[in-house]
Each structure stands twice: as C-alpha cells, then as structure tokens.
Computed example of a mutant assay.
Amino acid sequence: MIEVMGQRQQELLRLLLRTKSGMTVDELSRKLEVTRNAVRQHLASLENDGLIEPGISRPSGGRPEQLYVLSDKGMEIFPRQYSWFAELVIDSIRDEAGEGELNERLGRMGERIADKLLAQNAEESDPQKKVEKLAEIMQQMGYNTGGASVVDGQPVIEADNCVFHNLAMKNPDICRFDLAMMSKFTGSKIDHQECMALGGNVCRFKFSKPSKKKSGKS
C-alpha cells in the first residue's frame, strides 16, 4: 500500500518506522528538507487516514514538543511476509493430524473469529444487512469486496483480492477458514461459487438460509 502514496509521505512514514519513539515537526522538516507547513499538511493527511497518531509531548527549553508516531494501521502498510510461516503450520497439522482434522481446525478458527466480530458489531436481524456488514468488514480486512449484491434474490459477496492468496494457491483447504467465518457471522449457508485459488477470476460467495434439521419423534 505504501507504494501508492506520494514520495514525501513515503519518506515521512519510513522515518517514523525507523524512529519508534516518534519525531517532531521540526525534526521531520529537517530530515525531509521541506517546510514545517508542508510537514504539517502531510501529517494531517496521514493522521486522517489513521496511519499516524500523536505520541507523547517531549519536554524542551520552552513549550513541550509534540511527537508523532506510526499507528498500528501505519505499521501494517509496510510489507510483511507471514505466508511461509502459515504454510508451515498448515503442513504440520496436515502431516500430524490428517486432512479431516485440518479442516476441522480451520473451521473452528473461522468461527472463533466470527464470534469476536459479532461481539464488536451491532447485531443485525435482517439477513441482507448481515451480509452487507460482513462485506464491509471483509473490505476493511483487505479482501476488496466492493460491498454485497443480490443475485436471484440471494445475497452475494465477490472478492477480487484474497488475503490468503499465496497460501490458498498451495493449500486450497485454507478457504475453510473463510467459509466458517462467513457462515457463523451471518447465520447462513455458504455456496462458494467461484474461487481464485482454483482458477476463478474472483471469489464469489452466495448466502442462503440454512436448511432446518428434522427433529425425530421421541
């Protein structure tokens, strides 16, 4: 993500990455060789995007100096490679417990994340609203959904970016995590109609009411 920003903002963020304690407007101005007003404009824009935040005020000879630091969101825009570790974990579970147990664990993990998301968001009773909220959350997580739509009377989410893409290309079982998370969050049955890990252009998920279980007579 950082590559799509202007050069000055990239340089500013990298300076803050290297200086975890934070930097003042004057320090950034000297390092970037731009005016203090220019630095303030960049800081205002980056703070508005949630990438930086005010840190502590540092005592000085006169008025305390305000430090600026990277936010957690700002830290995450720098490249990080987790896929090799996740692949190692997936392979280890499969080798030790088998394919069935791997799918069970991925499903439980997805449901656990759904429980946390449900606790953080206002409960929706309307099925379409539930899917729309899920699409919004997935967008924030990086799936690039563009929101939810309705096809043949059923809610549909299409994602053209999978946050597990490299891992899923080698281990399609990872999709079990997504499916369990979506199902638990919306209380729906999920039809995974298209998958990028299997050659699709997008990942398409269709949501429908779960079939009612028949109760036996006692």
Rank of each mutant, 00 (worst) to 15 (best):
Q10T: 15
V151T: 14
R176K: 13
K73L: 08
R176Q: 13
G107A: 06
L13G: 13
R58Y: 09
N48G: 15
K20F: 11
N103W: 05
L43E: 08
I90R: 06
F185P: 00
I113Y: 03
N48F: 15
D91E: 09
D91T: 05
V39D: 08
D115T: 06
N48C: 09
S215A: 09
L67H: 05
Q10K: 12
K214Q: 15
E65Q: 14
E136S: 01
S188T: 07
V25D: 08
M141D: 05
K129H: 01
D152A: 14
K20P: 13
T145N: 02
K214A: 15
V4Y: 04
A159W: 01
Q120N: 06
E101K: 09
G216C: 05
R105H: 07
E123K: 06
Q154V: 09
A119Y: 01
G153H: 02
H165K: 12
N201G: 15
Q7E: 15
E3L: 14
T35N: 15
A44K: 13
H192F: 15
G107E: 10
C162L: 04
L102R: 01
K184M: 05
I90K: 04
S183F: 05
E33Y: 03
V34I: 11
E47F: 12
Q140M: 12
K116E: 08
E123P: 09
G55I: 04
H192S: 10
F78Y: 00
Q66L: 10
P172Y: 02
R40F: 12
S45V: 15
P54E: 03
T24E: 03
M23H: 04
Q7V: 10
I157S: 06
S71H: 01
R40N: 13
G100I: 00
K189R: 13
L167K: 11
L16Q: 04
K20T: 09
A119I: 07
Q139H: 05
E123I: 07
G107M: 02
T186K: 01
L28M: 08
K212N: 13
R8L: 10
I113T: 02
E3S: 15
F207N: 06
M23D: 00
Q140H: 04
D115K: 12
H165D: 11
E47A: 11
M169H: 11
R36M: 13
I93H: 03
K73W: 12
E3H: 11
K129V: 10
D126W: 02
F205T: 10
V163P: 00
M181L: 12
G216V: 13
L167E: 12
G216W: 14
E33G: 03
L46M: 14
E76D: 12
R18I: 06
A148I: 11
A197W: 02
W84P: 06
G147W: 02
P172T: 08
F177Q: 02
G199H: 00
A44S: 13
E136G: 06
E3W: 14
G98A: 03
D115W: 01
P54S: 09
K206P: 07
E11R: 13
V89R: 04
G142I: 00
M23F: 01
S29E: 07
K213N: 12
N166H: 12
R36A: 14
C162P: 01
G199N: 02
M182G: 04
N37M: 15
K209N: 10
Q120G: 03
A44V: 10
M196K: 09
L118C: 00
Y143F: 05
E3A: 14
A114W: 00
H42S: 09
E96P: 00
G50I: 07
I113G: 01
N144D: 15
A119N: 04
K217R: 04
L70R: 01
L117S: 00
